[in-house]
């Protein structure tokens, strides 16, 4: 049974469809990357999964449960968390408060999860009292991911976690993503740094013009000449 299954979905922001029949699946504890040119609809797929988009046709299953037209706040309760591409922290809240907001809907104690996030991202511990808006790009991304982990999700949607970061930080973030995955969280990730992302993913999808182009194991995609020429920059 797949963790997430997207079946031939169509939909968009207004009247025109952006997605024209996208399908994908993620198995439990997999890392899956979505690659594609700008404007391909990668972010739009994520929004569709998270209930932020009108899905006109097709369906989305999570643990075999149909979540196609659920609202984001309902989906969060099921165990999917989402880190948007931009504006993904609360800038005037402190690091600590950002993480607390991540656990807003939890009725139980979340101090353990908080410790776990601080362990995962040690720089955040020193900056816990600082406003998130004053952090560097890399630290901000850590806050965003940490916030999404506070509910202990079984699936994490990451939209370009490495965007705008220096190579050193990219490396760090990817390491953390891998570690999160090792702890049992399925990860669906959109990435511009395609080669690097595929190098530690299990599988990948290549999206262009709102539809699936290629799907294969990460290794095969990296070795596919056509894919390399068209989507991985040679």
């Amino acid at each position: 049974m797949s963790l997430l299954q997207v079946d031939d979905i169509y939909g968009g922001y207004g009247n025109a469809d952006i997605l024209h029949g996208v399908s994908m699946h993620i198995e439990p504890q997999e890392i899956v990357s979505i690659i594609g040119p700008n404007g391909a609809g990668k972010s739009t797929v994520m929004k569709a999964v998270f209930g932020l988009l009108k899905v006109r046709q097709g369906r989305i299953l999570f643990n075999n449960k149909d979540i196609t037209r659920r609202r984001p706040d309902q989906i969060v309760h099921l165990g999917i968390c989402y880190v948007p591409q931009e504006f993904n922290v609360f800038p005037s809240l402190t690091v600590h408060e950002n993480l607390e907001m991540g656990a807003f809907i939890r009725k139980d104690s979340y101090s353990e999860q908080l410790d776990h996030v601080y362990e995962l991202f040690p720089p955040l511990k020193d900056k816990r009292g600082q406003s998130a808006g004053h952090l560097s790009g890399g630290q901000r991304q850590m806050v965003a991911i940490g916030r999404a982990l506070m509910l202990n999700p079984s699936l994490l949607l990451l939209d370009e976690p490495s965007a705008g970061l220096s190579p050193l930080f990219i490396e760090q973030i990817f390491e953390r993503v891998l570690e999160i995955n090792k702890s049992g969280v399925g990860i669906l990730m959109v990435e511009q740094n395609a080669k690097q992302a595929l190098s530690f993913s299990h599988r990948g999808y290549i999206l262009s013009m709102g539809g699936n182009r290629f799907e294969d194991s990460a290794e095969n995609l990296l070795n596919n000449r056509e894919v390399a020429e068209m989507f991985l920059g040679g």
Binding site: P72, D73, H77, P84, F87, F90, L93, E97, M101, I105
Partner: peptide, 23 residues
């Protein structure tokens, strides 16, 4: 307070608050 912090969060970014599951 939790509600006070959530208010500041909404004021920062309503969409993100929604995505976070805040009512």
């Amino acid at each position: 307070t939790r509600m006070g912090k959530a208010m500041r969060a909404l004021s920062d970014n309503m969409d993100l608050a929604q995505v976070t599951g805040i009512n």
